[in-house]
Simulated assay, not measured.
Amino acid sequence: MSTVIEITGLPPERIVFSPSPLAELSFALHALAQPGHHPGLHGWTSSTTAALKQDLADRLHEADFLWSPAFSDISMPFAALPHAQGHPGATLAEDLDLLDQLDDELFVAAALEISCSSIYSRGGPSPLVDAVAREQALERATARGPRQTEFAHRLLADPPGVRAWIRRLFEDCEQAFFADVWQRVQVQLAADARHKAELLRRKGLREALAEVSPALSLEGEYPGAGGPVRIVVDKLSSGRTTAVDPAIGPGLTLVPSTLGWPHLMVLHAPGWRPVIHYPLAATELAGPPSLELVRLRMEALAHPMRMRICRSVGRAAFTTGELAAECGISAPEASRHLAFLKKAGLVTTRRRGRYVLHQLDLTAVARLGSDFLEGVLR
């Protein structure tokens, strides 16, 4: 089984490598909703979930129809807009502006369809205007539970209102956690996109695809030597699309992600420019620690004051003096406890000007168990 993208006659300059803030936010929301899919992000998903305000957590739960367990194509609106020429926005606000440009019929069809559906590649009218498509969309929603059913009915009854609600939700996610995520990853994503584009220019599409993922292969000679050329994506699903549809304009976009592993997503809906959303590398937990390190960590956490310090530095970075005042102990005593926690690999230290700041290493703590992590962050 595979997904096939026909690219015969596609000019090389129409192949775009570019990061997308909205696509990366979609993967972030998927990881929060399905943390078991992303064991290497366990520390981040646990700490982010624990820090969410209840109102935002409730709204994310209500809308996870859009990113869990599969993905809605509304995360890549640039692919449905000919004037965008396959280029995502540079900021989340720009991506959301592109999303606002989708008409209601297209938006509703994309929101209520999922790429793993057997009818995904067929196209057809929007559930907003076609009774049969509407019934099918509601059946899929019903199969996923009453919350998804209610969301689907709301979207069909009031597309503008729900669209505005979704945009506010994405904007609130940016304020709550995604702005920090994007600040950390955007340079890496942009560098990867530039590298892949340069590889395409210098060595050709076959070499560029090989670096994107071993699941991608090129059949035929690109850019063309007489005969069909296509990209084959090795997936446990079947699909087919073209990158030379005159209705949307020729082009193929490849979007890197730091959060996506192990998923390799392919947008191949009719009437949309094909998009390959690929992970930069496998995000894996580190190898098992030594028994000595495990013993040190257990010993470190057996002391009630060190547990209290973990709770403090799990929420923010503190200087030694601040921790001493926070915990009601002397600075030398706080320093001794911090030294023990650092030796156990549970606390990291960084310098900011003349201040030395200490913070809990959430990835290391997550390896001890989600109950402990949730306990110190509760």
Rank of each mutant, 00 (worst) to 15 (best):
T320D: 03
K53F: 07
G353W: 10
R163Q: 15
C310F: 12
M265N: 12
I7Y: 04
L25R: 11
P262T: 05
I15M: 14
V233H: 01
K235Q: 14
R352E: 15
G251E: 08
A324M: 04
A190K: 12
S75G: 13
L92M: 12
L22T: 03
E174H: 07
G375I: 03
A164G: 08
A190G: 07
L200N: 12
M265Q: 12
F372T: 07
L128S: 05
S20C: 10
P223Q: 08
I74Y: 02
P12Q: 13
R140N: 11
V4K: 03
P159T: 05
H303W: 06
R240K: 12
P12H: 10
R351P: 01
A137E: 11
D371H: 06
A316R: 14
A191E: 15
G375K: 01
A131V: 14
L293M: 14
G43V: 00
S126T: 07
L200D: 13
E105M: 06
D234F: 05
P35D: 10
A225P: 04
E24G: 09
Q186M: 13
R163E: 15
L346N: 00
S75W: 10
L209F: 11
Q183S: 14
R273M: 15
V255L: 14
I276V: 10
I114P: 01
P274K: 10
L138W: 11
